[in-house]
């Protein structure tokens, strides 16, 4: 349904060109949940913003191909992109506290999206908003549509944002760390909700997060990103039971266990993710990698067998 090929996003800055996304390719099939994991600066958010056409920085250059149901999105006119956004592809953002305009009621904001895409009366749009709030389990939806964002708790706001994203029944939902700003118990509710809605609406979901635990709960397939490239991708089962890329492995190892014996020390990854400006021409993870060897000064190529990794240990030249 969504097919991204060799996507490159770079920004012109005062210190020169910065390559935020460097040749990323992936597909999203209908009705699946693709989990995208990575640390800050890994490019996980930027790549999906590019898909949404939401990179508004005039200094950004987007290259490659993004095909949505066969239609090329790179270079699509702003007007056509707008028709797609919110209707076919919707997005949920990280911080529900700031994602809604503070001066309008949530009912108004949901109705606004519906009316931007469909010819429908204000009354009917309001009724749809009530139904949607019902769907995301907001109590008393008929009254809740008259509430302003600041009158709702974080969890309730995120539900409202989700209701808004679903308002035009999109076939692709991009969720950018939708639970990171929430408490654990509320996160569990929202994850349940996303799963339930994904079943009911049969939308495909791209779920961006930094939390491997959340990925294990929600995703069908997983894509691990590091420094603007894909480090590893595969089905959830493959990736968690046999991680191939040393980064995926190390990331899983560095999370403290919730049960069983506590390790004396955690297995940590030395160093920090590279800054955008200082990316090497070789494997970006090599400086922090315990398994690096001579070949790692070159750029590894992502394999293409379904469960893929960009590592010379897996795919020697």
């Amino acid at each position: 349904m969504l097919s991204v090929r060799d996507l490159r996003v770079s920004f012109c800055t005062e210190q020169g060109m910065v390559q935020a996304i460097d040749g990323v390719s992936f597909d999203v099939a209908e009705g699946e949940i693709l989990g995208v994991v990575g640390e800050s600066g890994s490019g996980k958010t930027v790549s999906l913003l590019a898909v949404m056409g939401l990179i508004t920085d005039p200094n950004a250059v987007i290259e490659g191909s993004i095909k949505y149901q066969g239609r090329e999105l790179v270079g699509l006119s702003a007007k056509d992109m707008r028709k797609l956004r919110g209707r076919e592809i919707a997005m949920i953002f990280q911080d529900p506290m700031t994602a809604l305009t503070p001066v309008y009621t949530i009912g108004w904001q949901i109705a606004e999206q519906i009316r931007a895409h469909e010819k429908i009366s204000a009354k009917a749009a309001e009724q749809r908003a009530i139904d949607l709030l019902q769907e995301v389990n907001i109590p008393n939806p008929a009254e809740a549509i008259h509430l302003y964002p600041h009158q709702l708790s974080g969890g309730m706001r995120q539900r409202a944002v989700i209701a808004m994203a679903l308002s035009c029944n999109p076939s692709l939902l991009v969720a950018d760390e939708p639970t990171t700003a929430l408490d654990v118990t509320v996160q569990a509710q929202i994850l349940d909700l996303v799963r339930k809605l994904q079943k009911n609406y049969k939308s495909a979901v791209v779920f961006i997060t930094h939390d491997m635990g959340v990925i294990a709960e929600i995703a069908d397939r997983v894509m691990v990103m590091y420094a603007g490239r894909i480090a590893e991708r595969g089905s959830k089962r493959e990736l968690f039971s046999e991680p191939q890329h040393p980064y995926t492995q190390a990331l899983l190892d560095s999370i403290p266990p919730l049960e069983g014996k506590r390790p004396h020390r955690l297995k940590s990854i030395p160093g920090a993710p590279p800054a955008l400006l200082h990316r090497s021409t070789g494997c970006a993870f090599a400086p922090r990698c315990a398994k690096r060897f001579d070949a790692c000064v070159n750029m590894p190529i992502l394999t293409a067998n379904g469960h893929d990794a960009a590592c010379f240990k897996v795919n020697p030249i």
Binding site: T185, A188, L191, I215, A216, K236, S241, L258
Partner: peptide, 27 residues
């Protein structure tokens, strides 16, 4: 108990077997 059970665990073998208690409502 609910708090601990709500933590997502990055282990697909245990993810299925763990009993999750999803609390209703917000703090």
């Amino acid at each position: 108990q609910a708090l601990i059970s709500a933590v997502p665990v990055p282990d697909i073998n245990k993810a299925g077997s763990r009993k999750r208690i999803v609390l209703s409502g917000d703090v």
